[in-house]
């Protein structure tokens, strides 16, 4: 991440200077910082709401029930998570919310799962295999119905906006399978470096 971040910033400055858009690049620092905070503010309200609802789901045993139900699949994808742990329930709810296109609900659920995975994680600075798997599932963005895209197509006068559903489903499933396969392979090929940094 160090190199990627540094690379993006260096390319931006150098390229901006070459094309005479350095001023725009500098302004982008301020506008980018502002839009990051805008994103956080939008997220804060909905996050607070869903964390509240999730607590109710947790206490009433729904999360645990889902954890037990999905134990066989979870064992395959998240072998490091203890059997029946509530992290599995959170992950399952995160995945379902994503699949249903409820990204507002999916993020708080995913973050709740991350919180639990961090408790299980040995090196608090470095991502665990389970975290990388959860992130791979989320970055692949599996979704049953791309409602936003259909809405934009429809708003712009597409004849048959829903015809993209099946092709999109095929693509998103394939990409998702690639992501989780890659994550499993990476977990085996590059095990976490043990205590390479100061452990807290």
């Amino acid at each position: 991440m160090n190199y990627i971040w540094l690379g993006i910033i260096l390319i931006s400055f150098i390229f901006g200077a070459l094309t005479g858009r350095l001023n725009d690049v500098v302004n982008a620092i301020f506008s980018g910082a502002k839009s990051a905070i805008d994103v956080v503010i939008i997220l804060a309200g909905i996050m607070t709401f869903w964390l509240g609802i999730m607590k109710i789901a947790e206490k009433s045993g729904i999360v645990n029930f889902i954890s037990k139900l999905l134990q066989p699949i979870a064992k395959l994808l998240f072998p490091e998570i203890p059997k029946g742990d509530r992290a599995i329930g959170d992950i399952a709810m995160n995945f379902s919310a994503n699949a249903l296109g409820l990204s507002n609900a999916a993020t708080p659920m995913g973050l709740k799962a991350m919180e639990r995975l961090q408790e299980l994680n040995k090196d608090k600075n470095s991502a665990s295999n389970s975290m990388c798997m959860l992130l791979s599932m989320n970055t692949a963005g599996f979704q049953l119905i791309p409602a936003t895209v259909i809405a934009i197509l429809a708003a712009n006068g597409a004849k048959n906006p829903t015809e993209i559903i099946i092709p999109t489903l095929i693509v998103t499933s394939c990409a998702f399978l690639c992501a989780i396969t890659a994550a499993r392979l990476c977990a085996k090929l590059c095990p976490p470096q043990k205590d390479s940094e100061v452990s807290e």
Partner: peptide, 18 residues
Amino acid sequence: VYFGSVGIKKFRYAIFTG
């Protein structure tokens, strides 16, 4: 967002798989 929420600084192979 996900790594930020729990303070993970080393993303390991998550960038690659993403």
